[in-house]
Computed example of a mutant assay.
Amino acid sequence: MTSDQHVRVLVTGATGYIGSRLVPALLAAGHEVRVLTRSADRLTSRDWHDAVDIIEGDATSRADLDRALTDIDVAYYLLHSMDGGADFEERDRELARTFGLAAQAADVQRLVYLSGLHPDEKKLSTHLASRVEVGDLLMASGVPTVVLQAAIIIGSGSASFEMLRHLTHNLPVMLTPKWVNNRIQPIAIGDVLHYLIGAATLGGEHNRTFDIGGPDVLTYRDMIHRFARVAGLRDRAIVTVPVLTPGLASHWVGLVTPVPSGIAKPLVGSLIHEVVCQENDVDDVIGAPEGGAMTFEDSVKAALVGKDETTRPEPGTVEPARLTAADPDWAG
């Protein structure tokens, strides 16, 4: 595949935060797009509904995957569990294995997966460890796989961004865990989409991870202070306490933000790690976003005024920050 080639792509998780923004961006790039969804009715209000091939099916079904992957060049894997269920790791493990086997049998040329940025340490949070394992399973499938690893994604509707937004707006003074001092490299949603789209036509048979991030390395404390300034709020007083465990912190987040505890728990659990890019190879093979990656302040401004990629969620969609565990296609 070459950079000027139009390809046939499959997008899973098309009703999720990333997938719902990726589909129109792929169409704008001239690609032929198919989506796999459990409920075709959920897509009828999308502007791009009539421009894509919709396969109604379940990603846990090998037969449904075989139908969806027929004649596909590149498949985007945007599925993972964030419902807090005790067996989510095994569910994600089996889903990735099944998808990889089906993609190999269908002679798919590339898989693209959006994973989480993580440090090189053996003990990761259960959610982050599962995301890493899924990437490893896809890379071991026999199909060349590009795994893009991102930390906090700044964009209207992103669960991580909505957690930051509502914590800052609702709490002029907050007691926080010690992880607010950990370093994080956030990235704008528009830049994430740039790399996802670029991965579709990337030359060669790459089978590896790529770290992706914006130009700023900040602590969560820094992000709260900077968000407040961009939003025109008074500076926030932040006091760290040693006894606020990830479990307690996720319930606290669930109380003061619209992010359900089931989603807040893995998000908070991942923040116990410092998540900073360890390499920047992606800009050598895909190329940097036009004009360079967006700064934290600029990406927050774009999100607050609804000018981030594809602006606000389309009519009929649900912001991921308000999703429940029952949502069938959530990812990102």
Rank of each mutant, 00 (worst) to 15 (best):
Q5C: 15
V11M: 03
T12I: 09
I18A: 01
I18K: 00
R21D: 02
R21V: 15
V23D: 00
P24W: 10
G30V: 07
E32F: 13
T37A: 05
T37S: 04
S39Q: 13
L43S: 02
T44Y: 01
S45E: 04
S45I: 01
R46V: 08
E56A: 02
E56R: 00
R62K: 09
R62I: 11
A63N: 11
A63G: 09
Y76Q: 03
Y76K: 02
L79A: 05
D83V: 10
D83G: 13
A86L: 10
F88T: 11
E89P: 08
E90N: 15
R91H: 15
L95E: 10
A96Y: 03
A96K: 07
A103S: 10
Q104T: 12
A105G: 03
A105Q: 03
R110P: 02
V112P: 00
Y113A: 05
Y113C: 07
L114Y: 00
S115G: 14
S115T: 01
G116E: 03
L117A: 09
E121L: 14
E121H: 11
K122N: 13
K122S: 15
K122L: 15
T126H: 12
T126G: 12
L128I: 06
V132M: 14
E133F: 13
G135E: 12
L137A: 07
L148Q: 03
Q149S: 11
Q149M: 12
I153M: 04
G155D: 02
G157T: 06
S158W: 03
S160P: 01
S160G: 05
E162G: 10
M163V: 14
H166Y: 14
H166C: 14
T168G: 00
V173W: 01
M174G: 00
T176Y: 04
Q185G: 09
I187V: 08
D191F: 08
L196R: 00
L196S: 00
G198Y: 13
N207R: 02
N207Y: 05
V217E: 02
H225G: 05
H225I: 06
R229N: 11
G232Q: 05
L233W: 06
L233I: 13
L233T: 09
V239E: 02
V243L: 15
T245N: 15
G247E: 13
A249T: 12
H251S: 15
W252A: 12
V253D: 03
V253N: 04
G254N: 05
P258L: 02
P260L: 00
I263Y: 03
K265L: 11
V268E: 00
G269A: 06
S270Y: 04
S270V: 11
V275T: 10
V275N: 01
V282H: 13
D284Y: 08
D284H: 12
I286T: 15
I286L: 14
G287K: 14
E290T: 11
E290N: 13
G292R: 10
M294K: 07
D298I: 06
V300W: 04
T310E: 06
T311W: 13
R312H: 10
P320V: 13
D329V: 11
W330A: 12
A331N: 08
